[in-house]
């Protein structure tokens, strides 16, 4: 279970998170939606300990990762898989080695086991035959799939997705969404997805949390969010220019 309590974060004079509270149950898929530059990625980076909050707690399976030392934080990080916005694949190694990397370095498995796992996961994300290629030689959609494969290959308990479909065409977008649904069914991970894909993301997740002005202003099932009477949520979901949301602040 992930529990975020009163999370605050500022960069210089800019207060990005102003008291975020959210609970995510085990095996639940939650989407975080909100304005661009509204602090969604900053929020996600706190979950894996890449940023330290100014105030507040992040409790993962009973461990408050804001108060533990580096060693204990690394133990909690072992539970995570992260799909970064641009994939964050290692440029200097090929696709096979990218996916095999956490198995080799984190779990220290034998090469024959690694080979079997990498082949399996690449088949699952529909990328057979590109093992020898380098990240620069494949398309953006393929890179996202490889990133997903690398995040899932260790069968983590929690998977974080930072805008996994940014820059993809509608067909690829749906294919990535379907992949998230299928792998979630198979592996049963807890998932947090940062997304701008409205309304498509509503078909993927169990719950949606709307981050606005540094706070979660509304949490609910996709249906509840779609039928929300909150003027800010309504404005964001409809995507119209005029409404309750303040832009350019």
């Amino acid at each position: 279970m992930i529990k975020i309590i009163d999370l605050h974060k500022s960069f210089a004079d800019q207060q990005v998170l102003k008291g975020v509270n959210l609970e995510i149950a085990d095996k639940e898929l939650v989407a975080i939606i909100g304005q661009s530059g509204g602090g969604k990625s900053v929020f996600l980076r706190h979950l894996i300990g890449l940023l330290k909050p100014d105030k507040g707690s992040i409790i993962i399976d009973g461990v408050d990762i804001t108060k533990v030392n580096r060693k204990e934080l690394d133990l909690t990080r072992q539970k995570f898989g992260v799909v970064f916005q641009g994939g964050a694949l290692f440029d200097s190694v090929n696709i096979y080695d990218n996916v095999a990397f956490p198995l080799r370095e984190k779990l220290m498995l034998k090469e024959d086991v690694i080979k079997q796992k990498v082949t399996e996961i690449l088949e699952e994300v529909g990328l057979v035959g590109i093992e020898k290629k380098y990240p620069a030689e494949i398309s953006g959609g393929m890179r996202k799939r490889v990133a997903l494969a690398r995040a899932l290959v260790t069968e983590p308990k929690i998977v974080l997705f930072d805008e996994p479909t940014t820059g993809l065409d509608p067909i690829l977008l749906h294919s990535i969404h379907n992949l998230i649904i299928d792998t979630h069914k198979k592996y049963g991970f807890t998932g947090v997805i940062i997304s701008h894909d409205i309304p498509e993301i509503f078909d993927v997740v169990d719950r949606v949390a709307f981050l606005y002005k540094g706070k979660i202003v509304e949490v609910g099932t996709p249906k509840e969010i779609q039928n929300s009477t909150n003027p800010v949520s309504r404005h964001f979901i409809t995507g119209k220019y005029d409404g309750s949301i303040e832009f350019f602040n």
Binding site: F84, A88, D91
Partner: peptide
Amino acid sequence: AEIGIMRITEQIDALIAMAL
């Protein structure tokens, strides 16, 4: 340049996220 590009493309963050 190589380490810098790894930083801006989140490859270093990916290593940290893997507990490495």
